[in-house]
């Protein structure tokens, strides 16, 4: 038996505490703020442009999302978005451009396994859970909103 018992495991985990490097949390948060803020500002620019063409607000928001998804997808295709992501962390992942990155990166990666079982099957490998839980939560919230309030 070379698997450590619970007591040894706990002792080892305490022992490790001294050696763990601290994450650069403050730096990461500031960078996420800047990168995320910048992406949203670009989005606002797109929105303003679309509105200036006389498109109603609701449709303009929808169109802005599509434009940003396209931008994220293209930057992923060009091999740039993974760098933005490793620099900006959640600042790059949370905007819808990051959502696009999470769809395009597996689609590209698994193309070598074919267009059906590769691209088709793996496209939502990362983004799938987001859609599943967004749908579930939204449904529950809406039902509560309808019947409780």
């Amino acid at each position: 038996m070379t698997k450590a018992n619970i007591r040894e495991q706990e002792a080892y985990s305490v022992f490790l505490e001294d050696f763990r490097p601290k994450r650069a949390t403050l730096r990461n948060i500031v960078v996420a703020f800047l990168v995320g803020g910048l992406i949203c500002t670009i989005g606002q620019g797109v929105l303003t442009f679309i509105l200036s063409k006389g498109i109603p607000l609701k449709q303009a928001y929808v169109l802005t999302s599509s434009v940003m998804v396209f931008a994220g997808a293209l930057l992923t295709g060009l091999g740039v978005y993974d760098r933005i992501g490793s620099f900006g962390g959640m600042g790059a992942a949370l905007p819808i451009t990051g959502f696009a990155n999470s769809v395009v990166s597996p689609a590209m990666e698994y193309k070598r396994e074919g267009f059906v079982l590769g691209v088709g099957a793996k496209m939502f490998q990362v983004a799938g859970p987001v859609i599943v839980y967004a749908t579930l939560t939204a449904t529950i919230v809406s039902i509560i909103k309808l019947y409780v309030f």
């Binding site: 999302s65 396209f70 997808a73 819808i96 769809v103 590209m108 193309k111 809406s142």
Partner: peptide, 26 residues
């Protein structure tokens, strides 16, 4: 629900597929 997010999802599938056809991972 999906009516409202249709544009986002459709763009993701469409552009995702397009990019997968056009580009290879680097």
């Amino acid at each position: 629900g999906f009516k409202a997010v249709s544009a986002g999802l459709l763009s993701a599938v469409l552009f995702g597929y397009l990019m997968a056809v056009l580009f290879n991972p680097k």
